[in-house]
Computed example of a mutant assay.
Amino acid sequence: MPKPQDWIEMRKSQTSVFATSADWVNVISNILAKRALTFSKTGVFDTPDVEELDDGKSLEPFASYLVLGRPNRLATRPVAQRSGGTKHALDQLDNPGSVVLQIGGMEVDRLVAGQIGTVRTEQAAQDLYESFLSEVKKQFVKIKSYYVGPDAARLLDAGQRLSPTSKSPPEYDLTR
């Protein structure tokens, strides 16, 4: 089994974004027009079977998704439990060429940031990350260290809070 340092570097490729569901759908639709992808929620599950989604229209707010180019298959890995039994993790560890989308979303009083990133160093992962980044750069505006989708920018201009996290105080909100 490879050691983590053989396939991962500590420096991550990541980009923080403020995006509504509509903003994400536009980005993902344009990428899917050029390449086939699969999306699946990351996490630890009771079975090794994971639900794969073929489009970005059904992605849930505040969820993280592993994205992989087709025809590659998503792989889970067994995780022994202290209490006995085994769970199955879906993450980047056994999925070379993958990217993680952290969706973010709307809360009662704010839009919370999401992120596109990968810890994988393979060319396939970097190319996939660059596909997302390129599309975000085409459609979003950069404000400080964030890329802000068109709908998110309208919310910002209307006085809505755009926060890095759901617990961030107002002084950390994005402003123009």
Rank of each mutant, 00 (worst) to 15 (best):
T15K: 13
Q14V: 02
K12P: 00
W7R: 04
F39Q: 09
V17Y: 13
K34A: 11
N26R: 14
D23K: 10
T20Y: 10
S13P: 00
T15C: 11
S21Q: 15
F39D: 03
D23H: 10
Q5V: 02
A33F: 03
I31G: 05
N30Y: 01
M10K: 06
T38C: 10
I31W: 00
V25G: 03
V25H: 11
I8P: 00
T42R: 05
N26Y: 07
K34G: 06
M10G: 04
D23W: 01
I28S: 03
D23S: 10
V25C: 08
V25E: 07
W24Q: 12
L32K: 06
Q14S: 13
S16C: 13
R11H: 09
A33H: 09
A33D: 07
A19W: 11
R35S: 08
W24K: 14
F18V: 05
Q14T: 07
W24H: 15
N26W: 08
K41Q: 02
K12G: 08
V27P: 01
W7H: 01
N30I: 01
S29Y: 06
N30D: 03
T38E: 03
E9K: 00
V17F: 13
S40C: 10
V25F: 09
A22C: 12
S13N: 11
T20M: 13
K34S: 02
A22N: 15
V25R: 11
F39T: 06
A33W: 02
T42F: 05
K12T: 14
Q5D: 04
S40Y: 03
I31N: 03
S16V: 12
K12L: 14
I28H: 06
S16T: 09
R11S: 10
K12F: 09
S29M: 06
A22R: 15
K12A: 15
L37F: 06
V17W: 14
V27E: 04
S29K: 14
E9F: 00
A33N: 10
L32G: 00
F18L: 13
T42P: 00
S40M: 08
Q14C: 05
I28K: 03
M10N: 07
T20C: 09
K12Q: 13
V27L: 03
D6M: 05
N26G: 14
A36Y: 05
A22Q: 15
N30V: 00
T42Y: 01
E9A: 05
N30E: 08
A36F: 06
S21W: 12
A19K: 08
Q14I: 05
K12W: 11
T20V: 12
S13Q: 12
E9C: 01
Q5P: 00
K41S: 02
V27Q: 06
N30K: 09
F39P: 02
N30T: 07
N30Q: 10
W7Q: 04
K41D: 00
N30C: 05
L32N: 08
K34P: 01
M10A: 11
T15L: 15
R35I: 09
A19Y: 09
D23A: 07
